[in-house]
Amino acid sequence: MRSIVEAGLAADIRAVISNRPDAAGLDYARERGIATAVVDHRNYPDRAHFDRALAAEIDRHAPDLVVLAGFMRILTPEFVDHYSGRMINIHPSLLPAFTGLHTHRRAIEAGCRVAGVTVHFVTGELDGGPIIAQAAVPVLAGDDENTLAARVLKQEHVLYPQVVRWFVDGRLSLRDGRAVLTGDASAGDAALCVPGADD
Rank of each mutant, 00 (worst) to 15 (best):
R113E: 14
I131D: 04
L159W: 00
A62H: 14
L65G: 05
P45V: 15
P92V: 12
A133E: 00
V164E: 03
Y160N: 02
I58H: 09
F167G: 04
L174R: 10
P195C: 06
T99Y: 05
L68Q: 05
D64R: 09
E145M: 06
V137H: 00
A48W: 06
R2F: 03
D51L: 08
H120M: 03
T103D: 01
D64W: 04
R73P: 11
G8N: 10
L140N: 05
E31A: 15
D198H: 15
G142N: 05
G128T: 08
E6D: 12
T118F: 04
L75T: 02
Q155L: 08
D143S: 13
V139M: 05
S186T: 14
T36F: 08
I74M: 13
A53R: 11
V152D: 01
P63H: 05
A149N: 07
A141E: 15
D189K: 11
W166K: 08
V16H: 02
H41R: 11
D59C: 11
A62F: 07
D184I: 13
A48F: 12
H91R: 05
P130T: 08
P130E: 00
A150G: 10
V194L: 13
Y28D: 06
R2Y: 04
A53N: 10
A23W: 01
L181E: 04
F79A: 02
I131G: 11
A190W: 08
A110L: 03
H82C: 09
A55Y: 03
D81R: 13
R178C: 12
Q162S: 11
L26N: 03
D144A: 09
L101M: 13
V164L: 07
A97V: 04
P21E: 15
A150I: 06
R86P: 12
D46N: 13
F71E: 01
R52M: 10
T123S: 14
V139Q: 07
D59E: 14
V119Y: 00
V122F: 04
V158N: 09
D189N: 14
R42Y: 12
I108E: 04
I131Y: 01
T123I: 05
P45A: 15
A141M: 08
I17S: 01
A135G: 04
I90Q: 10
D199L: 12
R30W: 04
V119S: 01
H120L: 03
H41K: 05
V117S: 06
R20C: 03
